[in-house]
Amino acid sequence: MAPLHAQPVRPVLSCRDVEKLYGTRDNVTRALDGVSLDVAAGEYVAIMGPSGSGKTTLLNCISTIDRPTSGHIYVDGQDITALRPGQLSRFRRERLGFVFQDSNLLDTLTARENIALALTINRAPAREVPARVTGVAQRLGVADVLDKFPHEMSGGQKQRVAAARAIVTDPSLVLADEPTGALDSRNSRLLLESLEDLNNAGATIIMVTHDSFAASYARRALFLKDGRVWNELVRGTKTRKTFFNEIMDVVSFLGGEGADVR
């Protein structure tokens, strides 16, 4: 099935025929095999797929942590595959926000400082920093743990602080890599609701996950298989529950036992 490109608004992210090859000439692994997709401003996209489908490689290419072998990736119309190493830091700093599976907070800094650091690295004026930090912390429900150190917080709180750090700079794109991977179901739900709120407030989010429940919070779900975009589901006006069931169908068809049976 061909990917859908009919987006009503200008795309924040466009991938065009992105390929990523690993290994030597004799033994090539095709991690990404011509992926093309668009993400519009304000979208919330979940990228799903079984292990080895290339979803993390795709995210690494989008986040400039890795470079595609061929193809182009545009963020806000700028070709990031053509950026020099010096420009990459600036691109990451200004356009991207990251949320990782392990929150990746700095253990020597308090929550407040962890969030503020994203701003100070971005050279935000010092007088704006405290208000922006408090504002985003309130939106994510972590205002009361701002002066705690990461080891004094629960896993869920850490992930939400990480989310706050990711969006405090108003990035064009928030990239989340298995953000609920290390959380229990209650904390997962809290984080996912927070991300949904952020999306409702205008943030563009791309989330890589193998968890159908997490993906059901997105507005659109893309399925990767063997390095290609294999299927796409759009939530539209459906309830989250219905969307979840649809995703489950695809997942069981795509991977897991379903695939084995086939």
Binding site: L109, E113, T120, A126, P130
Partner: peptide
């Protein structure tokens, strides 16, 4: 003095030292 503390990696360096 927030002007100095909230600038670049100063905060991080101070915390590193202090930790």
């Amino acid at each position: 003095t927030p002007r100095a503390y909230l600038s670049g990696l100063n905060m991080f360096v101070m915390r590193q030292l202090n930790s």
